[in-house]
């Protein structure tokens, strides 16, 4: 167990370092970052002074080392636009995005697990077919279009929910649905497949044979085992959702990290963009690490192999 843990941790650190290198080199994609910052009307001297001010005149590896060293201490530099420390702005916005992600995840799981279980109890029944149809339709719907459609019906036509902002819980209902529905099909299919497999296992037959109530067999014996892969899927998808929330946050004007990322891109605020990409990536790495550890703890076959 300890060796597995250590190796897994080592990989996570290496991945994080590689991601940081990629994120850092992003600023050189547009060519010379100093020229990009200075704008079109800048003179040669302006560009030169910006280059020295931000340290773009140093060797790239030195710049990277310096950036990484500061980032590890939680210092991502100053935002070019807001003139505030990047880290401060990010940690102001992070809770909103986390909240949105969690609500979306809860919505997705509350919908997909019961549907998956129902579908698995009676394969090829009407419920099963309906659930699969919903899954196929859900996977094909562009998220921004679904969000706008929700907004149109629930916000304008029926006037049930506020359409923009992030002040009250009601603001989070539509965005959570719009963000969460996308992972519902995958979670549902996984629950269904897991349940189908578990339900044909010997220990379920034993449980039934000794006369346990079918509800007990279903929830205490079957679902517990079938749910494991869904949990690791949920962890991974939570990471994806945080990255994908940029579209939903922009539409509903939710003051989270995604909206901040979009604003920063509009303002060409490079340090902010870099920091957001890095923070979300590291968060994803931590989530998958956690999911793997959880799985290893629950399933001895993983940690021994």
């Amino acid at each position: 167990m300890f060796t597995y843990l250590l190796r897994r941790l080592g990989v996570a650190v290496l991945v994080a370092l590689t991601v940081s290198l990629i994120t850092f080199s992003m600023i050189y994609l547009s060519g010379d970052p100093a020229v990009a910052l200075a704008g079109e009307a800048a003179t040669e001297e302006d560009i030169e002074s910006i280059r020295t001010y931000y340290g773009y005149d140093r060797p790239i590896l030195v710049q990277y080392g310096d950036w990484l060293f500061k980032a590890l201490q939680g210092d991502f530099g100053q935002s070019h636009y807001l003139k505030q420390p990047v880290a401060l702005v990010i940690f102001e916005r992070l809770p909103t995005t986390m909240m949105l992600g969690l609500c979306a995840l809860v919505f997705a799981l509350v919908l997909s697990i019961p549907l998956g279980v129902l579908a698995a109890i009676r394969p090829n029944s009407l419920i099963d077919r309906t659930a699969l149809t919903i899954a196929v339709i859900g996977q094909a719907m562009p998220s921004f279009w679904f969000a706008l459609t929700l907004m149109l019906w629930f916000g304008i036509v029926w006037r049930l929910l506020p359409i923009t902002g992030s002040d009250s819980w009601a603001n989070f209902v539509m965005p959570s649905i719009a963000l969460g529905y996308y992972i519902t099909p995958a979670a549902m299919r996984l629950t269904r497949a897991g349940m189908l497999e578990v339900l044909s296992a010997d220990y379920i037959r034993t449980a039934r044979a000794k006369g346990l109530r079918s509800v007990t067999v279903l929830f205490k014996h079957a679902l517990r085992n079938a749910i494991l892969p869904v949990i690791s899927l949920a962890a991974v998808q939570f990471g994806f959702m945080l990255g994908g929330s940029i579209v939903i946050e922009t539409i509903f004007a939710i003051n989270g990290l995604g909206f901040l990322a979009w604003e920063s891109i509009q303002r060409a605020d490079l340090p902010m963009m870099q920091a957001i990409v890095l923070v979300l990536s590291v968060f994803y790495i931590l989530l998958t690490l956690l999911a793997d550890m959880l799985n290893a703890w629950l399933d001895p076959r993983i940690r021994v192999a």
Binding site: G243, G244, V277
Partner: peptide, 9 residues
């Protein structure tokens, strides 16, 4: 490494 970077962003 690729998976840990958010695609849309």
């Amino acid at each position: 490494t690729r998976l840990s970077m958010p695609v849309v962003l």
